[in-house]
Simulated assay, not measured.
Amino acid sequence: MMVSKNCLRFGCLAGLLLLINSPVWAQEEAGLHPATARAGRVFKIYQFTPETMPQIDGIASDWDRVPSSYTYGTTELNDTEDGHGTDIDTSDIDVTVTVGWVKGLNRLYVLYQAYDDFWDFERFNPQGYLNDIFELVVDGDLSGGPFIYNPLLPEARKWGASPAHVQNHLAFSGYHAQNYHIFTPPVRGSWTLIWGSQPWIATFPYAHRAYSYDFTQGEAGKLTLEFWITPFDYAPVEGPQQAKASQLVENKLIGLSWSVLDFDGGERDGHYNLSHDTRMVSDASYLCAFRLMPLEGDQVPDFKADWSFSLIENRERTVAFRDESVGAIESWHWDFGNGDFSTEQHPLYQYPESGVHYNVTLEITGAGKTDRKTRFWEVMIP
């Protein structure tokens, strides 16, 4: 985690170190995961391929391929603040949430679908309506701990009442985990309020969204919201130039949870959340563990050639080739682009000259099938 000049000036460094060293979200060891919310249960994030990734248009059909085991509904929620507990009347509010990812993109894709018997919006209008909210919190590197109020600045909780509140907001709030108060539906052209000092995380190219609904204030109906966001390990007030996006890789655990704030005519009817602890909104130690899952079987090709390569340090003009093909492979045939060949699965090859681009091809065979993968001009020998 990076530390800004503002943090040093406002004395927040100790608070950041407290978060970095939080034992609650220590990295996985011996097959254990660090989650505390939901008794350590691990939820799943579906992996899309680049060819099947959702188009953000408010139409949910892109998600039809996702197995139902990736979708979490109203029965998973608990109203830990307004008295309903897990006994939630689905004729009043009924929601489903599905989360996806794409290898190579540090984005989380979310499909939120909700039925409400009274949609309350226009939060800031003179009538005083409050907005129904889908509140999403993400901690992409499991750093855990408070992320809204610095525990070393107790005066920070006094909204606008002390310089400490401003200092906390500018140098701490939302830096290592992010809270999105998403308006359902959007308000005056705004789709979310970022509880933190970095509203830029909700703008393109760091986020994108689309809605579909046909109700008006006070009516019943169904809302579909599709969006993607970019989690950040470090998201400073200064902007994206100094930010560090969370790296999303297969089988990684991240911290994630959501709340549904349901207002009916200006009065809050419930605060339903996946963590079963409303402290999730400001302390990442109360988020749930979500795993970035490998591709499901229907997304994995039966037989496909693929490979990668890397230059070997301290060995002049030497390249390590790695087979990454899929299927029941019986033989490999590498064409190094200069008339030389290999039948090894993972060959190591020393090129005879430097300063040349090579077109390298791997051909695989097996079970009566053949496939090839060529990388054009990618293997360059310095």
Rank of each mutant, 00 (worst) to 15 (best):
M2R: 11
N6M: 10
C12H: 11
L13Y: 15
G15E: 05
N21A: 14
G31N: 07
A39P: 00
G40L: 10
G40F: 11
F43W: 05
Y46L: 11
Q47L: 06
F48L: 02
T49A: 12
D57S: 05
S61Y: 08
G73P: 04
T75R: 13
D79P: 07
H84Q: 15
I88M: 13
D89I: 08
D89N: 15
I93L: 08
D94H: 11
V97E: 01
G100H: 03
N106W: 10
D116L: 12
W119Q: 02
W119G: 01
D120H: 04
E122M: 07
D139V: 02
F147Y: 15
N150D: 15
L153Q: 06
V166M: 04
V166L: 11
Y180H: 09
W191Y: 06
G196S: 10
P199F: 09
P205M: 09
Y206I: 02
A210S: 14
Y211I: 05
L223H: 05
F227R: 02
T230V: 13
T230G: 02
T230I: 07
P231E: 04
G239A: 08
A243Y: 09
L253Y: 06
L274K: 01
H276P: 01
D283L: 03
A284L: 02
A284E: 00
Y286M: 01
L287G: 01
E296P: 03
W307G: 01
S308V: 14
F321E: 00
E324D: 11
E330D: 08
D340H: 13
T343F: 14
Y351Q: 08
P352G: 13
G366A: 13
V379A: 06
M380T: 02
